[in-house]
Nucleic acid binder design. Structure first.
Length: 845
RNA sequence: GCCCCUGUGGCGGAAUUGGUAGACGCGCUCGACUCAAAAUCGAGUUUCUCUGAAGUGCCGGUUCGAGUCCGGCCAGGGGUACCA
């Protein structure tokens, strides 16, 4: 391009790659830790390398990119890195299905996705790229894990997994479909294995308290985490049993104790095990409870089943004996694994009592008079105590305190805090993950691998032709000598949950020495992440684990920060309908390009036969309802795709993908291009005039776009830019107009960086990526006239254009003088006039 | 089951946080330009029984005034600890 001749059309095909090369050559997105400029760490959740990027990635990274570029324009030293959450199940599935090695499959995917991300022109610091499946990453993770072990935050215990009895393998929850293994079709059962755990519960209170400091996190995420942590104040007390033993139970509703009609223990409770040892019906019942998977949803929605042990539990106040059941809906992990059941005020207990014909008593009512109101379902709400002896008439809160006081006075139990949060089970019986760095020795027990021997690397020669853990089957890998006694031992063959990988990657981005996980001082410079952006689906697990891991590292003295993400933004998901066919027990999914939707229905292109159109849900690899952005970039250019991602839908809300709209964005790119070519029109001569209205519009837009970007309200920023563009186009040539065009180039540069560079290059001022955000003149932000609404009885009848700041009395007089108002009043008596200065007048008649 | 969120024209959405509902964009309709098409430009576009009235998922409430606040529903989505 020459100085004066803009081509008629912007050619994204050649401009995109040219500017991408220019940025790379200038290394302008490589973060300099030594810089004296204020630092800004902008991070988007790193992707799983599933094969190709999808629109959800494009949306996520475009948002972060706009913010990162905007921050740079505002003088910040920006860290905006990218990497790969590269361990996980899909690589092993690919190995089983296609016979490819997980490593090869993963690194191929990374190469493809990196190439695709580069096509979008993201301002990323690729010099800090990480792949978690690389031993140079997971070796450091093993070292961190050993630090936590030494601090007592790691332990082993038994825990249940989904067991496929045919394939003889552990299944992920996702691999259990309708209670059956997805490959074998066998009914899944629970099986206990010895597994590794992290003591996240040690930080339960701190994780809860920390939420209060995260005031720029979405309220909904804080609420979800708070509920997940689930602190509850309640009472732990013991029942005396008819067999002479005592049974500790935990309840959050001691106020309802007079409504208890039975006691229930978990199937794996010692009492249940004891009964089963002498009663084969009980043993059979417990075996029955082993059927089915381990998910909370499955446990909660399963039919409530119980087994009457014949044991009685003596009510501490009434002295009455309540039957003790073994029940499938009681969880050993929560409280004491035993409950007092109050059917009137807990729905699970209600369902159970109804099924087994147990009494259902109301003990909480709206008023004393409603003590005998029938219960159609459990009522969990507030009220006062009824049918409850000495508690009658008390509020729920008072009754809780009173019961706790009496039980404590009698020495039967204590008020106690329990948490819903459970320790983090991190063992996976899989190959493609971080090996847990321990060695089992018959003499020494479980021995940590010495740090000098890290990383414990995965063996490359593994066999995926049969189900199960290839590490465990490997002929030599696990056979090593004990580091303590030197005798033959064997390696731990479990690998770490992939959520561990994503619990500290943001630290490694900030600092990546070869000999240790990170440098403490360098981490302190960049952390916390100023703005973290990712999908709402990570609201609980990933974000809670990362918060925990950061605390744990602070606990062992490796870092100073406690909260890794100062500000969080959860983008909505990109959604699309699904296409599938049923094949026996499993659903076969098809991707949108495989399906022809032109006829209104949906047929598979391959065979012309119909496929089922499913719900509009989040795009996911497993459902194949994904769209490939690369084709769209090829057709319309990166800037049109980026613009489309930012337009219309508010970023926190779901974005239903449709091809309609992208063409409009491509047209807008060309419209801007034509406008940018007019920068020299009318602005140079001595007779050039100012256009105060356009100046105002420009400065209002600069201010609004800045605050919209800072609030991540990109759709609003986009609308502002459309308005300014329209206003400039309509304006006559003037110095103001030329200036506005020039500033507009900078305004759109975070969103459409290639187009902006191409247009900016006519000024020979270097890269627009390294320019400055325009300054706002506050005097130009204020309008001198306002439009005021005039209502009669709350209904709009007229509008008035008046000077800003007009006194209320004058505004009222003007409104009453309005012909439309008088017609609408029709002679009625004016009773009241409400005046909101500069906004509205409401006349009440 | 439980926790959380969302619901506004044909479509995506905006609404100064209780003050003119539908900004801006897409789509569509009509017009200009053109031999023609594309592109571009201009006008229009919530609905109806249309001098008016109704209208922000449904039912009710608070208020001079409710998309916004409160109560109760309905529908869709996310999470539910081994999908990431």
């Amino acid at each position: 391009m020459t100085d004066s001749s803009f081509d008629v059309r912007f050619d994204a095909g050649q401009a995109d790659s040219r500017w991408q090369a220019a940025w790379e050559q200038a290394r302008c997105f490589e973060a300099d830790s030594a810089s004296t400029r204020p630092k800004s760490y902008v991070l988007e959740m790193f992707p799983y390398p599933s094969g190709r990027i999808h629109i959800g990635h494009v949306r996520n990274y475009t948002m972060g990119d706009v913010l990162a570029r905007y921050k740079k324009l505002n003088g910040f030293e920006v860290l905006h890195p990218m990497g790969w959450d590269a361990f996980g199940m899909p690589a092993e599935n690919a190995a089983m299905e296609k016979g490819v090695h997980p490593a090869g499959w993963t690194y191929d995917n990374i190469a493809t996705m990196k190439r695709q991300l580069k096509q979008l022109g993201f301002a990323l610091d690729w010099s800090r790229e990480i792949a978690t499946c690389d031993a140079s990453y997971y070796g450091h993770e093993q070292a961190l894990f050993l630090n936590l072990y030494q601090a007592g935050l790691v332990y082993r215990r038994e825990s249940a997994v989904n067991w496929d009895p045919v394939d003889q393998t552990v299944l992920a929850n996702e691999q259990v479909v309708d209670g059956r293994g997805w490959r074998s079709g066998a009914l899944v059962e629970k099986r206990k294995l010895n597994q590794w755990f992290l003591k996240i519960t040690h930080f339960a209170q701190d994780l809860l308290d920390g939420l209060a400091t995260l005031d720029t996190w979405p309220e909904k995420v804080r609420l979800m985490q708070e509920n997940w942590i689930g602190k509850s104040q309640g009472l732990e007390f013991s029942f005396d049993l008819s067999n002479g033993d005592t049974l500790p139970v935990y309840t959050t509703r001691p106020d309802t104790i007079f409504g208890a009609s039975f006691v229930a223990v978990a199937p794996d409770h010692p009492l249940a095990q004891g009964v089963a040892a002498v009663n084969c019906d009980a043993a059979n019942f417990i075996a029955l409870c082993k059927k089915g998977g381990t998910t909370a949803a499955e446990l909660e929605t399963a039919e409530k089943l119980g087994f009457d042990t014949g044991i009685g539990a003596k009510h501490p106040f009434t002295g009455e004996y309540l039957p003790v059941y073994i029940a499938n809906f009681v969880l050993m992990e929560y409280g004491t694994g035993a409950i007092m059941a109050v059917p009137g005020h807990d729905q699970r207990d209600f369902d159970f009592a109804t099924k087994y014909g147990l009494p259902i008593t109301r003990v909480i009512a709206a008023s004393a008079g409603a003590a005998d109101a029938p219960l159609a379902e459990a009522e969990a709400g507030d009220g006062i105590c009824v049918n409850s002896g000495f508690l009658d008439g008390m509020s729920v809160a008072d009754a809780k305190a009173e019961v706790i006081r009496r039980i404590e006075a009698e020495g039967r139990g204590t008020g106690k805090t329990v948490w819903r949060l459970r320790d983090w089970g991190i063992s996976r019986q899989r190959y493609w993950g971080t090996p847990i760095p321990f060695i089992h020795c018959n003499a020494c027990g479980v021995v940590p691998v010495p740090k000098a021997d890290l990383p414990v690397a995965l063996p490359e020669d593994v066999d995926f032709s049969v189900p199960g853990n290839p590490l465990d089957r490997h002929p030599t890998w696990k056979h090593v000598d004990c580091p303590q006694c030197g005798k033959a031992g064997r390696r731990e063959t479990d690998t770490l949950d992939t959520f561990v990988n994503s619990s500290w990657y943001f630290l490694r981005f900030a600092s990546q020495p070869a000999d240790k996980p990170f440098d403490q001082a360098e981490v302190a410079q960049w952390l916390p992440v100023e703005q973290y952006i990712g999908g709402i689906e990570h609201a609980i697990l990933h974000l809670l684990y990362a918060r925990f891991w950061t605390r744990a590292l602070a606990h062992v003295g490796l870092i100073e920060v406690k909260e890794p993400f100062a500000s969080l933004f959860t983008q909505g998901m990109v959604t699309h309908e699904t296409y599938s066919r049923r094949d026996g027990p499993r659903e076969i999914y098809f991707s949108p390009p495989e399906v022809d939707r032109s006829s209104g229905g949906a047929v598979l292109r391959e065979d012309g036969q119909p496929v089922q159109i499913g719900k509009v849900i989040k795009m996911s690899k497993s459902k194949k309802n994904v769209v490939d952005p690369e084709d769209i970039i090829a057709d319309y250019g990166a800037d049109a795709v980026r613009w489309f991602m930012l337009s219309d839908s508010p970023p926190e809300r779901d974005l239903p993908w449709s091809e309609a709209g992208i063409e409009g964005c491509a047209r807008f790119v060309q419209r801007l291009w034509r406008l940018f070519g007019q920068v020299g029109m009318g602005g140079a001569g001595a007779d050039a005039e100012n256009d105060i209205a356009l100046d105002r519009k420009l400065h209002q837009t600069i201010a609004a776009v800045a605050s919209d970007i800072e609030a991540l309200s990109f759709n609003k920023a986009v609308a502002r830019i459309y308005e300014l563009t329209g206003a400039i186009e309509k304006a006559s040539p003037s110095a103001s107009r030329s200036n506005a065009i020039r500033q507009l180039i900078v305004l759109v540069s975070p969103m459409m960086p290639h187009l902006a560079e191409e247009a900016w290059s006519q000024f020979r001022l270097g890269l627009v990526a390294e320019a400055s955000w325009p300054k706002v003149d506050p005097a130009l932000l204020v309008e001198d006239e306002v439009t005021v609404a005039v209502q009669v009885k709350g209904k709009l009848r007229d509008t008035l254009t008046v000077a800003k700041g007009l006194p209320s009395a004058e505004l009222e007089a003007l409104a009453l003088a309005s012909e439309k108002v008088q017609r609408s009043l029709d002679g009625a008596q004016v009773r009241k006039v409400i005046v909101v200065p500069d906004r509205l007048v409401n006349i009440v008649a």
